[in-house]
């Protein structure tokens, strides 16, 4: 029996050689439990428009979104999607992208839309997929 386990272990070792295909260093293993995502209130001061939009977004988060529970099934959430869309394109396209996202959120059967699913169960739907640049579209 011991021999059997030894053979199994040695076979496993030869398979595990893969973990040494790149040199690694010692690392400290964190004892702490990873804290869940906390809402951060940040103002994007890249330009006046983004400052105003991010201020409005933070205000919405503080007074509404943070108090009404976890409702948006998407990642990033609809409000974040709007801010990111405007940042990536402009206010007009960003608004259209947001309207489209909001409509897709209304779809009761959105689970059938083949969105990739994040570890927290949310549908991954980044604005970069909707900028009309095919090379920016990602499925994973």
């Amino acid at each position: 029996m011991r021999l059997f386990f030894l053979i199994i272990s040695i076979c496993a070792c030869s398979l595990s050689a893969q973990s040494d295909w790149a040199k690694w260093e010692a690392k400290q293993i964190p004892y702490e439990i990873p804290a869940s995502h906390q809402q951060e209130y940040k103002i994007d001061s890249s330009d006046l428009g983004m400052t105003l939009i991010s201020f409005a977004h933070n205000t919405y988060n503080f007074f509404v979104s943070d108090l009404d529970g976890d409702n948006c099934p998407f990642y990033p959430s609809c409000s974040s999607f709007f801010v990111l869309s405007v940042k990536e394109t402009n206010i007009i396209l960003g608004t259209l992208m947001f309207a489209d996202r909001f409509t897709r959120d209304l779809n009761f059967f959105k689970g059938m839309n083949r969105y990739p699913i994040a570890a927290n169960g949310k549908f991954i739907d980044p604005p970069s997929n909707y900028t009309m640049h095919i090379q920016k579209i990602k499925f994973d």
Partner: peptide
């Protein structure tokens, strides 16, 4: 190095 699976394999061999 934080490679726990490999570590356990070798500790198991040492145990044997």
């Amino acid at each position: 190095g934080g490679k726990f699976d490999d570590a356990i394999e070798y500790f198991s061999i040492s145990e044997l």
